[in-house]
Design a protein around this nucleic acid. Structure first.
Length: 419
RNA sequence: GUGAGUAUAGCUCAGUCGGCAGAGCACUGGACUGUGGAUCCGGGGGUCAAGGGUUCGAACCCCUUUACUCACCCCA
């Protein structure tokens, strides 16, 4: 070997032995999303830098310090997408999809953020997300949250739902000003981080875990008590919707989302199987965003789920990784058998029976070992003896019993015993 | 960006006081000339992360660097 080349830091391989877990959760997502009327959209992994600067917000950590930005031959300033909503909205606007009334879209794919990797957080990570455009009513917020719940339950995962309202442009600015004033008044008793956050993102201060800060935070003004009437009604309706749909949640007044565009509904599904990065999915409403990005005023709600994190939860639960295996492994006992095996494999595959064989040939023992390794349900031995009789020896790899079978009609028989 | 921990075979890890580089699993061959799970016997596989220093002698002690992991920040 010459110089060894490894994967880029924070970017991981998902090998064949593990990829079944991803396929399972993706398959369930597609199934569930279809039940709720969401359709898939695929957008580029690279977008103009300006899309995120304007859409996600210059002052967010994501745009400010985590994005992969590069010049395309010195002409355009591009970025690897750090999240999926902005690009989806760009496509929504660009293709005039808003003329067709409300739209429910979903996407799945890689996102990129240049952070220090740790458990459940990677530089290339994968999100499955949905966006519902054109519906201002709280019913869609509730339906969407219920859909996440539905998806997770079908996977046997239970995650705690935390719900909050972060207000809107009518009530949040005044609240933030008050909160900042209050925090500045108590700056002396706050930790260094909090004094900084007071200016940068005062809502974050409320989430501080430093014991010394707690007394000040207890007395801080609360956003939920300062919501304007429309926000208050919206939040109440979302809660009523969740109750009607049988979704349990906890109101978490300190829940803040890291992206600037959220208004009103904000929520997060968390799991204690994840270590420090406990959020498996997060989302909320972003009513002004389509307009910010140059489209007509269009309300929107969406969420994104971390695929690596969900896979981590499934692993922690000890869930087996589903795998698609060959129904039958064809084994040749001699040269005659080898030729027959090749013909038979073609026939079986045409008939839709998954079969495999050891292209190396060789001793029976080795071929059986390979059959074992690939997890084939049955092994079929073919040699001169068998061919002369027009049959093969079918061995059940689990019970280890062997019975002669006619070669004609084999595909139909295999579909019966190894569907 | 900050902090801590770790680094020995493909994987998981031992390695005592500084004295020839080890185990289990995996792989491979045989015992078993047409049969995979067990058992037994054999085989291949190492820049002990890299570089420097101390020493008669370094996987082990010292310095530097790198990588990985976890955590902070923040987020999926």
């Amino acid at each position: 070997m010459s110089i060894k080349i490894n994967a880029v830091k924070g970017m991981n391989d998902v090998l064949p032995g593990a990829v079944g877990r991803w396929q399972e959760l993706e398959a369930v997502a597609r199934e569930v999303f279809a039940l709720y009327g969401y359709r898939e959209v695929r957008t580029p992994v690279v977008e103009p830098h300006a899309l995120y600067a304007r859409g996600v917000g210059e002052q967010t950590d994501i745009v400010g310090k985590e994005m992969y930005v590069f010049e395309d031959k010195g002409e355009d300033r591009l970025a690897l997408r750090p999240e999926g909503t902005a690009g989806t909205i760009r496509a929504f606007i660009e293709h005039g999809a808003y003329v067709d009334g409300p739209q429910k879209w979903f996407y799945m794919g890689p996102m990129f953020r240049r952070e220090r990797p740790q458990k459940g957080r990677y530089r290339q990570f994968h999100q499955i997300g949905v966006e519902a455009f054109g519906i201002a009513e709280p019913a869609i917020d509730a339906e969407q949250i219920a859909m996440v719940q539905d998806w997770l339950s079908r996977l046997g995962v239970s995650a705690a739902l935390q719900l909050n309202s972060v207000g809107d442009p009518a009530c949040r600015p005044a609240y933030l000003a008050d909160l900042r004033g209050y925090l500045e008044g108590h700056a002396g008793t706050l930790c260094g981080d909090c004094r900084e956050r007071t200016q940068k993102n005062p809502l974050r201060v409320l989430d501080c875990k430093v014991p010394g800060c707690q007394p000040v935070l207890q007395g801080a003004p609360r956003l939920l008590e300062r919501l304007c009437q429309p926000c208050r009604e919206h939040f109440a309706a979302v809660r009523a919707g969740l109750d009607a749909l049988g979704v349990a949640y906890r109101v978490e007044p300190r829940l803040v989302r890291g992206l600037d565009y959220y208004v009103r509904t904000a929520y997060e599904f968390t799991s204690d199987a994840l270590g420090a990065q406990s959020a498996v999915a997060g989302g909320g409403r972003y009513d002004g965003l389509v307009e910010t990005l140059g489209g007509p005023p269009t309300p929107g709600v969406g969420f994104a789920l971390g695929v690596e994190r969900l896979a981590l939860i499934l692993e922690a639960l000890g869930r087996p990784i589903p795998a698609r295996r060959a129904a039958v492994f064809l084994i040749s006992a001699d040269a005659e058998g080898a030729a027959a095996v090749l013909r038979l494999s073609s026939e079986l595959r045409k008939a839709g029976v998954a079969c495999d064989l050891d292209a190396r040939g060789g001793k029976l023992a080795r071929q059986f070992k390979q059959a074992e390794r690939v997890g084939a349900r049955f092994a079929l031995v073919l040699g001169g003896q068998e061919l002369a009789a027009g049959e093969g020896k079918l061995k059940d790899m689990v019970t280890r019993t062997e019975t002669p079978v006619r070669l004609s009609g084999l595909a139909a028989r295999l579909r019966e015993v190894a569907p």
